[in-house]
């Protein structure tokens, strides 16, 4: 297992290198100029040129790439043009909100998705099945921003139960943090729960058709024991994969939720960075997100071995 883990961790490096190189070229190839954005609408061409020189943006692209690699080897992701601080600091400041949102969203997604999928699968064709799957379909179809705005309108503006937007640190004020995070986590988790529910349902249906389930029933086991002791665990491996993917999506993909609920996380950071052409920040966020994707995949692979003893890594 240790050798396997080391091998997987080492494999991260070339993948990351390819990712950052592609992102470097992509962000530089799209038109736009960070300096023109920063200097404001009334700046003239001379001012823009002076500032480009100051930031090293007048250098050839290959030279900028070599400098970027050199900094990366020293663990330096560069300095944000717009925020005027090291990219690592900007990323660190936004990690907590994103992780809290991801955890909250994932919790809601699993809480809704897994039981719905299991119940729908176990009672295939029933009203439960139809009702829950219709709900799952809605979750997939309804755009996140629409759901978020309606949640805000209902629970914040009309009923006044929860704050509209903003973020409070869980370490400083856990109650305020919970109140601020409830609506974003539910709106994010609801759409993600749909995928989990559908996968859990189809896995459950497949497992329930297996011979050993028929044997368990033939032995006279209670239906509850058949479902929860025998079928559920075996249906779990693909569900864990989907939960892993959901987690990875939530790290880099909660952009809309972060913007609508004004959460200062990584999603909002990368969107503003793209709009401002803040190249070092875009590269930094992509690097972190890519690393998170790969690490989560690794963790999911390791979890398989615990769920299913037949899986072994050498």
């Amino acid at each position: 297992m240790t050798t396997y883990l080391l091998r997987r961790l080492l494999a991260l490096l070339p993948v990351m290198l390819v990712v950052v190189t592609i992102v470097f070229f992509l962000i530089h190839l799209i038109p736009g100029d960070p300096v023109a954005v920063i200097l404001g609408p009334e700046a003239n061409a001379q001012q823009i040129e002076d500032a480009r020189r100051e930031l090293g943006l007048d250098r050839p692209l290959h030279e900028q790439l070599v400098r970027f690699y050199a900094r990366l080897l020293r663990g330096d992701l560069g300095r944000s043009y717009f925020l005027d601080r090291p990219v690592t600091q900007a990323l660190w400041e936004r990690t907590e909100p994103t992780l809290v949102l991801m955890a909250g969203g994932l919790f809601v997604a699993v809480l809704i998705g897994v039981p719905s999928g299991i119940v729908a699968g176990a009672y295939q064709g029933s009203w439960w099945d139809r009702g829950l799957m219709t709900l799952a379909l809605l979750g997939v179809c309804v755009p996140g921003f629409w759901l978020s705005l309606n949640f805000i309108y209902l629970f914040s503006v009309r009923l006044g139960w929860l704050p509209v937007a903003g973020y409070a640190s869980v370490f400083q004020d856990p109650v305020a943090a919970f109140r601020h995070m409830l609506l974003p986590a539910v709106s994010l988790g609801f759409s993600q729960s749909a995928l989990i529910a559908r996968i859990a349902r189809s896995c459950m249906i497949e497992v329930l058709r297996q011979d050993y389930i028929r044997t368990a029933r033939a032995k006279g086991l209670a239906e509850r024991s058949v479902i929860y002791l025998h079928a559920f665990r075996n249906a779990l491996v693909p569900v864990v994969t989907v939960i892993g993917i959901t987690m990875a999506i939530l790290i880099g993909g909660a952009v809309v939720t972060e913007i609508v609920f004004n959460i200062p996380g990584l999603g909002r950071l990368i969107i503003s960075a793209i709009l401002r052409r803040d190249y070092p920040v875009v590269q930094g966020v992509v690097l972190v997100t890519a690393a998170a994707y790969m690490l989560i995949n690794l963790v999911v692979d390791v979890v398989y071995a615990f769920i299913d003893p037949r899986i072994r890594y050498v």
Partner: peptide
């Protein structure tokens, strides 16, 4: 407080945030 989404700014002034 930077609130990039205009609809959110409107909702926040409505609720008194």
């Amino acid at each position: 407080m930077p609130v990039p989404d205009a609809a959110t700014r409107v909702a926040q002034i409505e609720t008194g945030e």
